[in-house]
Amino acid sequence: MHPEQAIDDLGSGTPLVLLHSSMSSKSQWRKLAEQLAGRYRTLAIDLYGYGEAEYPATPEQFTLTQETDRIETIIRQSIGDQPFHLIGHSYGGATALRYAYAHQSNILTLGLYEPVAFHLLEPNEPAYQIIREVAERVAEYLNQGDIAAAAGHFIDFWSSPGTYLGLPAERQRILEHYIPKVSLDFQAILRESVKAADYRTLKLPICMLRSQESPLPTRRVAEVLENTLPRLECHWVPGGHMAPITHAEIVNLHWIRFIQQPHHTVPQAHEPR
Rank of each mutant, 00 (worst) to 15 (best):
M1G: 15
P3K: 04
D9T: 01
G11W: 10
S12P: 00
T14Y: 10
L18E: 08
H20V: 02
L36C: 05
Y40P: 00
Y40F: 13
I45T: 00
G49V: 06
Y50G: 00
G51Y: 13
G51K: 08
E54L: 08
T58V: 15
E60M: 06
T65D: 15
D69A: 13
D69G: 09
T73E: 09
I87W: 15
R98H: 11
A100C: 09
F118T: 01
I130S: 10
I130T: 13
R132I: 04
V134R: 13
E136N: 12
V138R: 04
Q144N: 13
D146N: 14
F154T: 07
E170V: 12
E170T: 14
R171S: 04
P180W: 04
K181V: 13
V182M: 15
I189C: 10
L190T: 05
L190S: 11
S193P: 02
A197K: 06
A197E: 13
Y199K: 04
L202K: 03
M208E: 03
M208A: 03
Q212D: 14
P217F: 10
E233G: 08
M242I: 08
I245F: 15
I250D: 05
N252G: 07
L253H: 08
R257D: 15
Q260C: 00
Q260G: 00
T265G: 01
T265Y: 05
E271Y: 06
